[in-house]
């Protein structure tokens, strides 16, 4: 039982991390059709910002700095590099690929290739006893952060004018401009939100893994992509569910099958989902027949 609880919360914690990364990716893609390969670099940037400040300043400040770093970097990338290329969608992806290569390499150049230990504050370093399991506190922090972000994103999308613009832009960007709205402001905003969440993911990921390294963001990005494809582009709820599912399946497979198989399981689910989607009609018919 205690193993089950620990695995579940660890899986959900990992899923929370995936959600923070995937929700930004999914929003950016949904609105702008930009597949952001630099997203992993934003995660890394956030992680290093948090690592630099931890120990010198309160941890909350370190987290805030990570968020700010991610948001500022993302807004800069959008306005300077992505914006001039809106008529060349493929080149936008290529530019993010270039950044995704260069930024982690730059981090490596400055702080070295080796992982740096991130000393989490005492409140996060301990464990909490729950149903007989001793669960590391940071799992709860991650899950709570993801829930807060999910709620905030939903509120933003449903209650604010910018959220309305974003939802409309996901459907038809050109028509939004034809209503007299400067959709580019929404682009920058969405990119910055994605960057902020990536920065947060970097900082919390540093706590979760206990260290930061230059390619940490990029390896998390892959699972971010898996989650986005499974959950559906531009669908926040779907992404949240998929993130939780992927995190849980990874942890459980790693524990009960073999270490390392969990990552495979995540990719295998992706394949199954894709095949099922390819044969959606067939699957629906099956379900109807079974019901």
């Amino acid at each position: 039982m205690s193993t089950l609880v620990l695995l579940t919360l660890t899986g959900l914690g990992l899923g929370a991390l995936y959600f923070l990364i995937a929700s930004g990716l999914s929003l950016i893609f949904g609105l702008m059709d930009v597949l952001n390969f630099a997203h992993g670099a934003l995660v890394t940037a956030g992680a290093y910002a948090a690592w630099r400040l931890t120990g010198h300043l309160p941890f909350a400040v370190a987290i805030a700095a990570a968020i700010a770093t991610g948001a500022a970097l993302a807004a800069l990338i959008e306005t300077v590099l992505i914006r001039p290329l809106y008529s060349r969608p493929k080149d936008q992806i290529l530019v993010t690929v270039g950044l995704g290569l260069a930024l982690p390499a730059l981090v490596q150049g400055i702080w070295g290739a080796d992982a740096r230990q991130l000393q989490a504050p005492k409140q996060l370093a301990g464990t909490v006893s729950l149903l007989g399991a001793r669960v590391p506190t940071d799992r709860f922090v991650l899950i709570a952060a993801a829930i807060v972000v999910l709620a905030a994103l939903k509120l933003f999308l449903s209650r604010t004018r910018y959220g309305l613009v974003v939802r409309a832009g996901v459907e038809d960007r050109a028509m939004v401009t034809a209503l007299g709205i400067d959709v580019r402001k929404a682009f920058t905003l969405v990119f910055a939100i994605g960057g902020a969440l990536a920065g947060l993911a970097g900082a919390l990921g540093g706590v979760y893994f206990g260290s930061v390294s230059p390619d940490q963001g990029t390896s998390l990005l892959v699972f971010g992509f898996v989650v986005v494809v499974i959950g559906g582009m531009g669908r926040t709820d779907g992404v949240a569910l998929a993130a939780a599912a992927v995190g849980l399946i990874q942890q459980f497979t790693n524990y009960y099958a073999a270490s390392g198989l969990g990552d495979f399981a995540a990719v295998a689910i992706l394949a199954v989902v894709l095949l099922a989607r390819g044969n959606r009609d067939g699957v629906r018919r099956l379900i109807r027949r079974a019901a």
């Binding site: 270039g98 950044l99 290569l101 930024l103 982690p104 390499a105 730059l106």
Partner: peptide
Amino acid sequence: SQPLVLLGVLFV
């Protein structure tokens, strides 16, 4: 000191 930085920038 990082070839990838230069290559990435060149690529962009």
